[in-house]
Each structure stands twice: as C-alpha cells, then as structure tokens.
Design a protein around this nucleic acid. Structure first.
Length: 902
RNA sequence: GCCGGGAUGGCGGAACUGGUAGACGCACUGGACUCAAAAUCCAGCGUUGGCAACAACGUGCCGGUUCGAUUCCGGCUCCCGGCACCA
C-alpha cells in the first residue's frame, strides 16, 4: 500500500518544531568549536530566483552538517538593499525606492522561511537601514583622517540628454539606454579609497587563503597585477598661456620594458592631457579629434577592442637618453585617469604600438635582438609571436645587455639625470566610491564656501537618506531636495551644502559579515562578539563576485583592523587545538600553524557556486524584434532517441527557435519561480534537486523531469520509512548471513564515500549516495531474509542522517516516526564502520597491453608472484599470447593487473 | 582585446592522488499490474558489426609522454564568467 507523502504538512511541522526550539539561534559558546557559515546576501529584487535557492541550500547543507558534527553554528541572513534596480522600479512605477525595497524584503523573507533554512533570523539586517549605513559613514571618516579616502577626478559615462551619469549597464552600444544619445566621457570630482596602498598585502595574503579556489586567487593576483618597471620623463620647454612650463617641462610615462626605451619613436597622450589641450588651442582639427575621443563609454572592454586612433599634436618632447626629438600624439586608447595619462611607444616591440605606427606611418626602430629575428613587416607575425626577451642592439652603450641588465643600466642612468627610477606598478586602481545616485548611503561631507569640504562630525551620524524621494531618471533627486542639501557648516556654522553623492553599494557589502557577527550596537561598528565568530569559516556565492566584491571586502576588513576594530590576531592556542581536533578538513586548512596569529582575512574558505541555466526559446517578430517564450509556453519535439530537435509555441503551434541554455533572466523569460516549485513539490524536493543536478561549482541546468525524479526519490524514502516503522527493531545478530553482510557492506562503503564527498563539498554525489542506500534498503526489504530488519534499521538511520542536511523536513519527520529520536539535528553524524566493510576477496581487472580482457576474484592476501601466475594462465590472456610473449606484468594491489606482451 | 574557467552517451552528471569510462538520476524502449490510463514495479539502454560469444571504435580537435591518459605536457576550436557605475 502506497503512503501519501504529505510534504506540505511535513515541512510545516518541521519548521514549527525548529522555531519553537529556537534551533538556529547562535550564541557565543566556548565548549564547542565555532562554524560561521555565510552565503552572499541577496539583493531584494522582488522574489527569490533559482540562484538564491541554490546558494542558500549549499549554505544550509553545510550549516546543518556542522551542526550535527557538534559545531556552534552561525548562519545569518540579510539584504543588500541599496542599488540601481530600486531607482529603476521607482521611475517605472512611481513608488519610492524605500517602499519597493521593504516590500520586496518582506516577500523574499517569507520565501526563504518556506525553504526551511537553518538561519538565525535574530541577526537579520538590511544595508539601507540607518543603523547599518551609519557605520559606512563612520569608517569612511576614519579613512579620510588616515588619508585612505581622498578626492580626485573620476571619468564617468555621461548622457548629454538626460544630463545624468550612467552606469556601465545603462550604456548600450555606446548610447544611453533611455535617451539613445551618444554617451560621452566626462570628468567629475569624486572620493577614492586608496586600495592600491593595500595592494601588496592583498597580494601576499592570498597565499594564506588555502581554503579558496585556485582560480579565484589567480584572478585576484592578476587583477592586482604587480609589475616592476621604470617611471621616467621626457623633457620639453612647452609653455602654457601664462608662460609657465606645462607640468614643469616633463612628460612622465611608465614602462615594464625599459630595455626598449632606445626604440621609442613617439609618445601617446590622453585627449585630456595638458599637452593635448595646449596644442589644440591653435589646431582646430586636433580640437575636433579630442572631442571625438571623449565619445563612447569608459568600459575597459570597449576601450580594448575599439579601433586605435590618434592625431599628431605637432609637439615634440626630448628623449631623456638620446636627446632626440620624439613626436607627441593624442591616442584615443590612452586614459587620463590611469597611470600618467601618457605612454611611450616602441612599435618594433609592442603589438599595439606597431599597429598604430603602421596606420600613421610612424618610424619603427628595432632595438632588441630576439633569437635572430631581424625586423621586417613580412616577418612581423613570426617575430612578434616570439615573446622571449632578448639582447639590446642599436642601443649605443646598452648594446649586448640582456633584459634585466639593460633595465638596471637604463634605470640607473635615468636616475642620475633626475629623470626617472625603478618603480612598482599596480594594475589595480584606487576604488572610486562616489555615485551620483539617490538610493545609496550618503557620503558624510558638507561643502562650505569658507571651510571647504568638511567631514560631518561623528555625533551627527548617520547622515540619513530621505526615504520618500521618487527619482525621475534625470540626475540625482537629492540635488533638488532643499531640506537635505541645505545645512549648517559643522565647522563655522554658516549655511552650507550637503554632499549629495552616495557610496558605491560595494561598500555596503564589504563588511556586513562582521556586523552579523556582532551585537548590533548603536555605539560601535562591531563588538567583541565579532572577534569570536570571525573569520567566516565558509563563504558561498556566485563566481561572478570572484574579483570585485571579494577584493573590496578583503580590503575593507584590513582597514577595519587597522583602525583597531578587530582583534582577530588573538585566538588562544587551547581553542585552536580544540578546533583542530574536531574541525572538518575544509575549515582546518585555515588554522594558523603556530597558534598565535591569524591573517586578517574575512573569509577562510570560499565556495564559488555556478549559475542556474534554463532553455531559451525565442522567435523573430514581424517587426524584426525578438519575442521570448517561457519554457511552459512551448512543447518540445524530440527524435526517436529522445534528442531535442525543436519546439513549438503552445499558443499557435508554430515553431520557435531553441537558443540553447542560458542564465535564468527576466528579459529572456526563462526563469523558473521557486514559489511554484515549492508549492507543487515542496522545499525538500527543491533543495534535493538543486544539490543533485550538478556539483556546486558548475553551472546547473534546470530540468522539470529532474525535479520530478527528485520528488519521486523522496516519496520512496517516505514509503520505505513507513514500511520499516511497522517492522521490529532488533540489534544486529552476532553473525550476519553472506547476503545481509553484503548489503551492510554496500551501505557502509557508500557512506564512507559520501563522507569524503561532503568534505570535498561535492554534494551531488552525496545525494546519489542517498539514492544508492535507498536502492539497497528496498532490495533488502524485498528479499526479506531472516533478520533483514536489523540491517535495514541501521541503514535507514544512516540514510536519514546523511540526507538530513539536504532534505531536513522529511528526515526530521521520519526520524521521529521510526522512533530513532526526537530531533535529528541532535543525532550524531554517521560514520562508516570498518568492521562492516571487511572483505577477504577482491576482484582484479586483467588487462593485456592496457586493454581490458577480463577479471578474476582473488584472496586479498595473495602474493604478487602468485597473482601474476594466475592472471597469465587465464584463457582470455592466453589467447593474446599465441604469437607473443610476456614482457612485463604490472600489479596494482587490489585493483588491476596489466600484462604487457609483445 | 585582456584575465579565469569549461567541453565525457539522447540529457544532467560519475570516475577522490595516471589504473575497469559512463556510478546515480532523467529520457527512451520492452514487459508486469489495469477494462484502460496514470502511478508503481521488473528488464534493457555509448557507437558500429554479429543470433551470440566477441571484436573494433569511443571522454571537443591535433600531437606528445606512459605498460596504461577523461586525468599529465604542447598547440588549437567553441562556449561561459569577469573587466572596475548590474549586483
């Protein structure tokens, strides 16, 4: 008789049970090792998407697993609540961003709760709360005091019609998304954080992040991009209209290839460079070109792929070593705000410079002799492909010097002339945090005509963001809000204007993990409890955050330490030893070896989860646009083998195009609503499918039938639980029959592998281990050998505990039903027993010349020589020895025999 | 353009440190149950040839190392993520 699987009731009861018992309330406790499990908090966009479900299920599996392993677990949740989408929604629906945001939070919180996550909701926070963002402002002021925050010019995308700054996302094919106007680059003042001052630390400390994926560390190291080169100046006597030397008569550049300096044939400067501006005054064509350079977006991908263009300024500068006159060009690929705003050009030894020189017929001078290549146009491809560094030629006194010696000699000569020196250069740029937007944390500065830019005093924090504004798409509405802008200067008391720029939302997300871990005081940013919980033991989030968010968080956390907020260097040796004895492999990796210092890093272990994909269906409309179809609006066409060959729209039964798999998005209409999934199949099914369908780090392809399969499995678990609940509970007999012993061995061996997979964070194979165990249990029951119940109860208790982090509701319910206990969370984690897995015979695979030819079962203790003799005598081996003899035999113990013949 | 990653049956994936390629699931096919269908259960299922035993081929492509390569090395192709104001 099939049992119903009443998942709604089961899930509701389990959730009530956890709530009544305060099961997930995290408190400082000294008798258990701590485990801080953090998932990247969601942006409250409206409702959860599948990426959230996946992310938070991974976090929940780890939290519940560690809970059962005896850790003191903290798993918090909150909202990354400032940002652009709220302003867009406001423009569209005429609702203040605050209301939209808080409504979304309320709905999404409900959704999260229905998924049964083991979250400590008492620590919930939203970054748009003044109690939270007050501390953004407070730390920003500390950074101003320390000189970490400073003001300089930034370049932004400017929409000339809406008179507003555009985010990169709002620039489509070089035009504003609302106006269609060509976007311009515009320079405006803004605040920067000196993250480059922390570049060396950020680079060095990557080595200590042994719990991070290599690829993320590589990406960060490349992003920081340390290079040692030479900064030097060309000289000139060009004067501005006031008669003063422009930039003191020096044009500074930086190069990592100082050995090629003798091959410089021109310099390129940014359109905004003072030399360019000066030359343009008497050169209308150049002035026009400079204007053209200002068109287009500031995105690096655009800059790197655009056609490189330039124009001669007619000016020359003097080469510091040869004294030759070097022409100065304006290049559209040189940015004023990066580096010196000028570059030297060596066409013979740089691909971009070569292209530019060919295009504008500029001189090309070979000064490096690489593996005998003599420069010529025809030989260029081969020549440039040879990236090795060579020996200087045509370089006067530097001839015959190799790269390193040449750089040293040239740097020394430049230094002697006072025109340059070796310098470390970072690809990393300082972090511009000013945004000309409304829905963000106000920058706590007041502009006073008499006193200049005055920081808001600490006792006047937070500078609260007015919550009733409705942006209209043209500029920051704060500018028009007199009640916000007009204020008294904190220094002299005279009327002054408040700064209306808000902070980059990456600031909000750079320290939320530390606030969760503290007591939410209104007096301090973080308190002593933060020291207890930090660092985060496991951080989980999308791979798309591998660089920016993670780098900013690492930087911000180091600054917090530097202003004395954290005490993460002091963990008692005793506690470390205790943690070491109990910690999982993953969390142990982060422990300090000597027991005294911990590096100031916020995230000890990192798991970067893959995206959730679904089919994309579309069709060209009559007007030439694209109409997207949701997966439930089409019927799929398969061939006899089940291969997808097409699809038809349900509404008109005409064909639609299958665009392959893509990330779930609103615009492509291929999202699946988690809510309908939960209602139709339950939270446990949603969770199980998410864990089973793919390993956490890979992309996950949505599949309706895969969800049904997961639900089918849970229903079988439910049925089996009820069948077994009617069977006697007896202890294992002293001696099991061969049949029962084989089942028991299979269950324990599967458990052993599953525990290894849990440590590897490979949850898809843990889920399949649960399936394997159930398959074994069902067969065991069907065969119903005497005493089968004893093995079945042991196996079922293993299955429920192993499955419980993934599907917590059904397992909690069955744990009670089967009388194993009241609360499965308090059960001990199952470990495979060696005694259950003993085997005296093993199967050897036999290969001939590496090809599988058969297998033999041998006693486990057999001698190698005996194994070889038996293997060679097998008929399936003898067959291959008719015209050949044995040359060598390789025996891999308990696994494989390879007989090499010839 | 630059940085990082990926590619295995009809599909999602497995094979943890070079040792049986395809675990587990989905889809499909056949069978049982049923008046019938759904659900459930049983069996089959990489490709090619063969009644079969078996043989050959097979982990994106080309080449290398090795007794043995999905795994290591060199060179490609295509796809995905990031590129500093989406979060």
């Amino acid at each position: 008789m099939q049992q119903q699987y009443p998942f709604k009731q089961v899930e509701q009861q389990a959730q009530q049970f956890w709530e009544a018992n305060n099961s997930f309330l995290a408190k400082q406790s000294s008798d258990k090792p701590k485990y801080y499990c953090l998932s990247m908090f969601p942006y409250p966009s409206g409702k959860l998407h599948m990426g959230h479900v996946r992310n938070y299920t991974i976090g929940d599996v780890l939290s519940r697993y560690h809970h059962m392993k005896g850790f003191n677990v903290l798993q918090p949740m909150g909202w990354d609540a400032f940002g652009l989408p709220a302003e867009n929604a406001a423009i569209q629906n005429n609702v203040p961003p605050a209301k939209w945001t808080f409504d979304n939070i309320a709905y999404m919180r409900k959704q999260l709760k229905s998924l049964g996550f083991a979250i400590d909701w008492s620590r919930e926070l939203a970054t748009c709360q003044p109690e939270y963002y007050k501390w953004n402002q407070w730390l920003f002021l500390r950074m101003l005091e320390k000189g970490i925050a400073y003001k300089k010019t930034q370049v932004v995308n400017w929409d000339p019609v809406d008179q507003t700054v555009l985010a990169n996302e709002q620039v489509i094919d070089g035009r504003g998304w609302r106006t269609g106007a060509l976007v311009e680059k515009r320079e405006i003042p803004g605040y920067y954080l000196n993250i480059t001052g922390y570049a060396q630390q950020l680079l060095d400390d990557l080595d200590q992040l042994t719990g991070w994926p290599e690829r993320v560390k590589t990406m960060q190291a490349n992003w920081i991009g340390k290079s040692v080169g030479v900064r030097f100046a060309f000289t000139h006597s060009i004067k501005n209209n006031e008669g003063a030397l422009i930039d003191d008569g020096k044009l500074w550049v930086f190069t990592t290839r100082a050995d090629t300096i003798m091959g410089v044939t021109f310099c390129a400067v940014a359109a905004e460079h003072p030399l360019a501006t000066h030359a343009a005054q008497s050169n209308p064509a150049l002035a026009t070109f400079i204007e053209q350079c200002k068109q287009g977006s500031v995105m690096e991908a655009d800059m790197a792929t655009m056609e490189k263009e330039g124009m001669d300024t007619g000016l020359t500068v003097t080469h510091p070593l040869t004294g030759e006159a070097v022409p100065v060009w304006v290049g559209n690929y040189v940015l004023m705000t990066y580096g010196e705003g000028a570059v030297m050009a060596v066409p013979a030894h740089d691909e971009r410079d070569f292209g530019f020189a060919k295009k504008y017929k500029l001189a090309i001078k070979q000064v490096i002799h690489v593996n005998g290549h003599i420069f010529s146009d025809a030989a260029w491809q081969e020549w440039y492909g040879d990236k090795s560094k060579g020996v200087c030629i045509h370089s006067g006194k530097y001839d015959t010097l190799h790269y390193e010696d040449a750089v040293n000699a040239i740097a020394a000569d430049l230094k002697a002339k006072g025109l340059g020196d070796k310098q470390i250069n970072w690809r990393l740029r300082d972090w511009g945090v000013s945004r000309q937007r409304y829905w963000g944390c106000p920058i706590p500065i007041v502009h006073c005509d008499s006193c200049g830019d005055v920081p808001v005093p600490d006792d006047q924090l937070p500078v609260k963001l007015p919550e009733d504004c409705v942006p209209d798409g043209s500029g920051n509405p704060l500018n028009k809000l007199a009640s916000f802008v007009n204020c008294a200067c904190p220094s002299c008391g005279k009327p002054a204007k408040r700064e209306t720029d808000t902070m980059d939302t990456f600031v909000d997300s750079s320290w939320y993990y530390a606030r969760y871990a503290s007591g939410f005081s209104s007096e301090v940013m973080v308190d002593a409890e933060t020291n207890y919980w930090m660092p985060v033991d496991q951080y989980i989030g999308g791979i798309e955050h591998a660089i920016l968010h993670l780098l900013y968080s690492r930087f911000w956390f180091k600054v917090m330490g530097d202003v004395g907020l954290l005490d993460s260097d002091k963990i008692a040796a005793a506690e470390i030893n205790h943690i070491k004895s109990t910690a999982t492999q993953a969390s142990q990796k982060n422990l300090p070896s000597n027991g005294t210092t911990v590096c100031r890093e916020p995230f000890a272990n990192l798991l970067t989860q893959g995206m959730v994909l679904n089919h994309i269906f579309s069709r060209r409309t009559d007007k030439g646009g694209i109409e997207y179809f949701a997966p439930e609006e089409v019927s799929l066409v398969h061939d006899e083998q089940g291969k997808l060959i097409g699809a038809n729209a349900l509404k008109d039964n005409l064909a639609v195009d299958f665009q392959g798999m893509g990330t779930m998005s609103k615009s492509k209409r291929n999202g699946v609503d988690p809510q309908s999934l939960i209602e139709q199949y339950g939270a446990d099914t949603a969770r199980f499918f998410m864990m089973f369908a793919a390993p956490p780090e890979q992309t996950l392809e949505w599949s309706d039938s895969g969800v049904e399969g997961s639900h089918r499995f849970l229903r079988r678990v439910w049925n089996f639980g009820y069948v077994l609940s009617n069977e006697k509970k007896s202890n294992l007999p002293a001696k099991l029959s061969n049949g029962l012993a084989a089942y028991r061995r299979e269950i324990h061996a599967t458990l052993k592998q599953a525990n290894i997979d849990l440590h590897r964070l490979q949850f898809n194979t843990v889920a399949s281990a649960c399936m394997k165990i159930l398959n074994a249990l069902e067969k065991l029951q069907k065969e119903a050998e005497a005493d089968w119940q004893s093995v079945a109860h042991e196996g079922c208790a293993i299955l429920l505990r192993l499955l419980s982090p993934i599907a917590p509701h059904i397992t909690q319910s069955l744990w009670q039903t089967l009388g194993y206990g009241d609360n499965i969370l308090k059960a001990t984690w199952p470990e495979a027993l060696a005694t259950a897995m003993v085997q005296d015979e093993v199967e050897y695979v036999v290969q001939v010349n590496g090809k599988l030819r058969g297998s033999i079962t041998l006693a486990k203790s057999m001698e190698k020589s005996q194994i070889e003799a038996i293997a060679v005598n097998q008929p399936f081996v003898q067959k291959h020895l008719e015209n050949a003899s044995v040359r060598k035999i390789i025996v891999v113990p308990n696994k494989l025999i390879n007989i090499v013949v010839g």
